[in-house]
Structures are given as C-alpha cells and as structure tokens.
Design a protein around this nucleic acid. Sequence first.
DNA 1: AACCGCGACTGAAACGGTTCGGTCCCGCGC
DNA 2: GCGCGGGACCGAACCGTTTCAGTCGCGGTT
Lengths: 352, 352
Amino acid sequence: MARRTTIVDVARAAGVSLSTASVALNGLPGVSEAKREHIRQIAQDLKYSPTLRARGLAAKRAFAIGFVVERSPEVMGSDPFFGAFIAGVQEAIAGAGYVMVLQVSPSPEQAAWLYREFAGERRVDGVLLDQLRVDDDRIGLVQELGLPAVAIAPPTVAAPLPMLSQSGAPGIVEVTEHLMALGHRDIAHIRGKLEYVHSVERRTAWRDTLAKGGLPAGAELQGDFTVASGSRAAEEILAMDRPPTAVVCVNDLCAIGLVAGLQAAGVDVPGDISVVGFDGIELANYLHPRLTTVRTAPQTVGRAAAAMLLELIDDPGREPWTVQLGPGPLVMGESTAPPRAGALPAVRRSVS
Amino acid sequence: MARRTTIVDVARAAGVSLSTASVALNGLPGVSEAKREHIRQIAQDLKYSPTLRARGLAAKRAFAIGFVVERSPEVMGSDPFFGAFIAGVQEAIAGAGYVMVLQVSPSPEQAAWLYREFAGERRVDGVLLDQLRVDDDRIGLVQELGLPAVAIAPPTVAAPLPMLSQSGAPGIVEVTEHLMALGHRDIAHIRGKLEYVHSVERRTAWRDTLAKGGLPAGAELQGDFTVASGSRAAEEILAMDRPPTAVVCVNDLCAIGLVAGLQAAGVDVPGDISVVGFDGIELANYLHPRLTTVRTAPQTVGRAAAAMLLELIDDPGREPWTVQLGPGPLVMGESTAPPRAGALPAVRRSVS
DNA sequence: AACCGCGACTGAAACGGTTCGGTCCCGCGC
DNA sequence: GCGCGGGACCGAACCGTTTCAGTCGCGGTT
C-alpha cells in the first residue's frame, strides 16, 4: 500500500519548506498570498489532507468529546431523548472539527471506568454528563481526572461544573395546572426513580403545584421511565379503592404503558381517567387517544451542552457557569378531559 | 497545569532508557522479569498511562471505528435497532481498545462527506455500513477511499465487502405461514421504502410465501418503518373495498401505528384483522393486543459486525467474506387469530 | 584463548504534523 | 550611506510513543 501523501510531499512539490507549507495551509499570516494559493493548489492536486493523529499530538488535543450512555441497551432503543440529543451534539461540534465518541455502559461502575480510560488515554478532550443522579459520583470523578465536563441537569442541582440546565418543572406545572383547570382534584403521579435528579424535580413540581392550588396531596406511584412501569402502574391504579381521576406521568413512555393498561381493563381515557405524559415523542401522536404532553427539545439540549463543552475545552480554567434553556410547550392531545362525576363503574374495573 | 507524566518520566525514574520502558510496559520480550516488574510498579506509582495520540501516530492507527447513522433525529429516537446495536458493537471492540465514533447524517450526501472526512483525517480505522440501499453509493465510496468497511445486509446482496448477513426473510416466512395456518387467504403487506435492501427482502419473502402456499398476491401498501406510516396504512385499508384479513408489517413500529389506527376506527385486532410486526421491540409487549412479531437480535448483529471489522482492520488485504446470522424466533402475541367469516361490518368501518 | 551466540539494554529514527527562533532581503527614514 | 523594521521563508525542536539497528557483557564452544 502506497504511503499516504503528507505535508512533506506537498512542501517538496511546491518547492517550499515543510513549515511554510503548514503555515500556508492553516491560513496563518507569514506567507505571501501568491505562494499560499500555489501551495493550496498543490495540496489539492495531491489530495493531501492532514491526519488528525499528528495534528492532535502537536496540539495536545483529541478533537473529540466523549459521551457515556448509562442505560441498558433495551432502554436506549426506546429512549426518545437519545437520538435527537446526539444529533444536536453533532451540530454543535462538527464545525469545530470535533467528533463524538459514544460508549454504552450498563452500570455506573463500568461507566466510571470508561471515564477513567477517556482521561488516561486522552481519548477525548471533555465529556458530557447527562441523566445526573443525586450525589452523582461522576462529578467528583471528572474533577479528580481533570476531565473537562458539562452536566445536563435541572437548575436545582448545584455542582462545581458548567451546567446546562434544562428544567422540566415548568412543563409539569403546566400540565398539572391544566388538569386542575379541567376540574380534577385527585391527581396522581407516576414518578421516575428518585435517584435521578430530574425524577425528583418533576415530582416536586407536581406536588408543589397541587399544594399551591389548595389540593390534597395526590397518590405517588413508582415508575422508571419505561412502558413496562406504566403498565404496572395501571394495575396498581385499578386496584385502588379510590383511583385518581388524573395521572401525571414522568414521561411519555410511562404514560403510554399506563393508557394501554387502563384501556385493556375497560377504563376509558380520558373519560374515566385523564393521563398526561412528558417529552412529546412522535409515537404518542399516532396512538389513541393522542397523548397530552409537554414537548421537550433534546436536540437543542445536545447542541447547547456541546457548545458549552467546546468553550470549556478552550478555556479549562474557566469558572463554572450555567446556561438555562426555556421550557417546552404544552402539547394538547386527547388524553385529558374533565373528571367524571363519581367513581369508576365497578363493572368496568372488574374486567381486568 | 503540570505536564502530564510520560513514558520518559517513567524511564528516568526507573533508571532505564525510554525504549526499555516501552518494551517492558508493552509486555514484549527482551526485558528481564525483575526489571519489567520494577518498571511496571513505577509506572503505576506515577499513574502513567500512554496517550492514544502518540501511540496511534506510531502505530498508524486510530483505534476507533466509525458509524454514520443515516437517519433523521426523530426516527433515531424511536428506532429500536439502534441502541442495542451500538451496545453490541461496543462489546466487540472494547477488548481491543477500540472505541466508536458516531455521526448522524440526515442525508446520504452529507453522509458521504462524513465518510470522506473519516478517511481523510484518518479518524477511524474502518466503518460499519448499515441500512444498505439498493446500489448503495457507499460501497463504491469506501473502496475509493480505501476505508475498511463491513456491511450489514441480507444475504441476497452481493458486494465486494465483507458482509454480516442478517436475514429477515425466514422470520417473514414464518409469520406469513403462521397467518396462512390460521386460515387467512388475503394477507397484505406494508412494506418499507424499496430503496432499502431489507425492505425488498421482506417484501419478497412475504410474496414468495403466499405464492408457495398457492394464495393470490396480496395487497401491498407503502410504509417507511415509522408509526406514522402504519397509521396512514390503516386509513388506506379502511378505505378498501375488500380489506385484507391479515397484514404483515415491515416492522413493529409500523404495526403499532396500524393497530392503533384500526382500533380507533372500531376495527377489532385480531378479531377483524390480524396484524404481525417484525423486530420484537419491548414496547409492543405492553400494548393491547400484544403484538405477534419476530424477534431480532440487534445486539448480536452489532457485536458480530464489529468483530468482523476488527479482523478486516488487522488484515486489510483479506478477501471479502460473509458471516451469516441465524434468524430470530417468532414471538407469539395476541394480534393474530383466524379470519372472521365475511367482510368487516359496514357500521364499524364508517366510524372513521 | 579466541570466537560465537544470545539476552538485556540503549540510542536514534520514525510517525506527521505545529511552532518558534532565526536568517535574509527589501524598503524606508534620517 | 547606514541602520532599522518587518515580511517571507527556513531549520529545527517538539508532541509521546513504537521500533529497529546496534552495543555490551557473559557463558559456552572449539
């Protein structure tokens, strides 16, 4: 296999020194325009393109950022956040010649090891941290490793890192108030695992909104962002003495599972029970009833977070700062309606 | 910021030459065991870890493989293949110190450009090609670029590349025969876009199975792997003079859209129309009726394809070879049943 | 005793760029 | 006429590894 053409070849062909060729091709001052153009032309003719390896070695840069997805493969497959987020990240970094290295890790322990490798090999110049947990180990870890990092988390979280704060609270407040305005007084919540800061944030928003509206505390069910957990929650709700008339779900997938479970038992949504989701995933638009939910903008999140990371990489000593993203809009579907007077008909509930 | 400890620091601290240190740490022969252990110990004390940049420069390797996802962000979010596939890829490459660089591209043109960059910058040592199209440009492109590549495609495709052939045909044959065994004689198909080889393969399998069973050709509707397309197909079916009694969908998402659309119009699945999907996604287990489908193993596909790519990278001159993956199992759900005698009740069909 | 082979270790080149100090030459001001 | 500043270009060092041609010393062979 023929040796790849290097900058030395270009320099020789142009009759200039290696360093002049470099300067010319990089657009640095110190070369006459005529010569620069000449060198450029030759580089093009020779199909020269600098290799990242050498450039990175000299510049002490990897021109890559890392992202470790701490989700099981199955969850990733249905995770609506993921794809758009990545697309957004790439939008932000492509222009800077950066690229994204993606790792999947089923457990936080293995993830920690991956971060250590990223840092040890200098494989990436920085990392993005998402799905922040309460007291997340990764924050201490990236500091120990000296790995530039940007965290994606609600504004309630305080950490010595630059943060892109994407708040889910306004959206939850909005859907909850929407249900209250419809006349619901018994509004339950299927929460995500409380180890995640965004689960906590959404739960708090729901609870505070009820309190602020003078309503009694609603029932709280454990979910985990999956359809399966919504399905389980449906069973629990059907088994309740006094089921809620409305349910705020931690996300759309959970809501879909809930709706399917309720419908299978003969419960009408929204006639008997109103359901709202969170995320605004495409799929929810084609199910029946169309889900009332809050649209989020994962692509924007990815773009903004990655842009922050690039800034941080350029100035690693910089004091942590925070960027706040506006809340997404409420998407009116057909899964909410005024509460029915009285309890669920007994006949229906026994179907299951 | 203190300079990072390099192998020179280790060598100096151990009182040996740079090259001895390198040899010792890489486990190469030519160093006494005592000295090797000593050097190892010192390296560990100094928290030395070699940087990929320098190693890559010397070894002329990027220690990374590339994957360009030619899907729009929205589709990616719901694509069940994606997450598990990536997890599988990583399983295969992590042991070799490789990593995956992920790029997203909305269009084939931009994708081509990304491949060119991969090759030009020598950012990756090889790429994985999935979602192969008929007469896919990428095949010529990677050859032109001299970029090692492994394609993931049905065995029907012939290309001068190593291929991981994952056939969807046996699965489609199986579900189609299942429907025929139930007594269906009018079995339609919602196909994917025919530019994709796997759409073609699945359609052919469906058509051939009908022919082999002595059944007339079934209706063929255009879909595109999305829930939306299944939803659209539902409308088309409802508008037909003589709707099929069963529908084979190109994938689960499409089937989900179809089922939802039919149900919304008052059509019973499987009572009035049976529906089968393809993929075996998690979500389909929690909808009602549970979807009868064919499970695929994207994680295995990823693992196998990546393993092939590593082999190819180690021996780029190697003649193209093919690895065949077994078909996945049929997953019995509740979305299929014997056909109802007679046409759909007119009253129902007018609901929509 | 001279020679050979071999294991252990060293020095330097190579990988392919960037960057910086320095030289040369030109035009300018005094 | 001379000194000076600055633009254009060159040479060499440097980034942090791997690798390979040698050197050295030692034990065993003839």
